[in-house]
Design a protein around this nucleic acid. Structure first.
Lengths: 204, 204
DNA sequence: CCTCCAAATTGATAAATGTCAATTATTTGG
DNA sequence: CCAAATAATTGACATTTATCAATTTGGAGG
């Protein structure tokens, strides 16, 4: 651990800055201290798919440390972000020397891919109301952890998390407001009927 | 390695048999010797999503070895299958004792999730012709490795790989045949214009 | 070789989603 | 505080995809 801390580089990014870019080689692991970032895939047709939201104490790990392959996603700061870059050579050293670290690393990596797996399966199997419900629940329960909550995301970004167009997202959101499931003003959201959203999410 | 081989259990499955079931605890890694199996997620609404095709020399690794969580997918034999079950306790022992093994394991795991990641992103970003083109190319280039090739899958299963209904899959396939992109009779497929399919896959 | 059953295909139609344009907030910079 | 730019919302419509029903094909078992 000491070794890690000694070799970290602290970096700050402002809202909108790219932390790193799809198809770039990566020699570092990124450890988030503060702020929110989005991990997304840039499609050919100007469609982005946000696969993960990162916040403090999250880590961007990918096996690329070992295999030298390119990262298949871009990471961009959604708010101002503070994070550490840790040289992957250090990680490899630790993998070689510290078994507890190796296991923790594997576990973290597994958690990440498991979560991404669930997200993406969800996105291929549900209709729009299910996807919107899911996105809203995830924001409340996994990211912001409070009920009236403020999101730094645009509607376009919410749509990119749900694999649909912003217009469709807004339309479904309006229906949810009419049905009394959620309330919003601007970027403040409040979940009014979590049961109802969960039910929608299950049915598709 | 000796340790692994000593502790393996050889198992055979017949076409259609379940190798293991979604939401089951798993204490073993499975190593495929012969035959083809499908890894899929069973949705609520009777919709299955095939996330991966497994063949000889593939391994079903998941981080569950360490974390005791449940596997989020089912694996079923598509042809007769021979495989080995390896106790995960052995894997953990090896992780502790053999660094080369640890790295190889991480790399394998990374390869797997990377591939699944690409598949699922593809499925959320393309229209039907792109998805069908992609599925056909993947079958030829990643699974069967020859050009006129025979697939043990039903049309329903091909559709489940492409996240669409069997009717839609068949319809798109018919168009491809009319355009001279592919030829099929029954379960034999031949890619006639790979360029054309690649182009379709890119455009969506 | 025939029969029966399941799979595959096709067609007609409905539902879901995306696109484009117009309008209404909302934010930003001076 | 205002103007201009940007984001959000709504509507009309086109496209894509799913659903349901009908028909055809192909294969297994007698």
């Amino acid at each position: 651990m000491d070794m890690l801390v000694q070799n970290k580089q602290e970096v700050r990014f402002r809202t909108g800055e790219t932390i790193f870019k799809q198809n770039t080689g990566s020699s570092h692991i990124i450890c988030f201290r503060k702020g929110i970032a989005k991990v997304y895939v840039e499609g050919d047709n100007h469609k982005n798919l946000i696969v993960k939201i990162v916040k403090d104490s999250d880590i961007i790990v990918s096996g690329e440390i070992l295999t030298q392959s390119l990262r298949p996603f871009t990471v961009t700061a959604v708010t101002d972000v503070e994070c550490c870059f840790i040289d992957s050579a250090r990680i490899v050293e630790l993998l070689f020397s510290n078994l507890h670290f190796t296991l923790a690393f594997l576990e973290k990596y597994h958690q990440q891919s498991h979560q991404m797996f669930n997200t993406l399966v969800m996105l291929t199997q549900k209709y729009m109301p299910g996807k919107v419900a899911d996105t809203l629940l995830r924001l409340k329960n996994d990211i912001f952890l409070q009920n009236p909550f403020y999101i730094p995301f645009s509607r376009q970004e919410l749509a990119d998390m749900s694999a649909m167009t912003k217009e469709s997202f807004v339309r479904v959101l309006s229906e949810f407001k009419d049905s009394g499931l959620v309330a919003t003003h601007g970027k403040s959201f409040e979940i009014l009927d979590e049961e109802g959203l969960v039910a929608l999410s299950r049915n598709g």
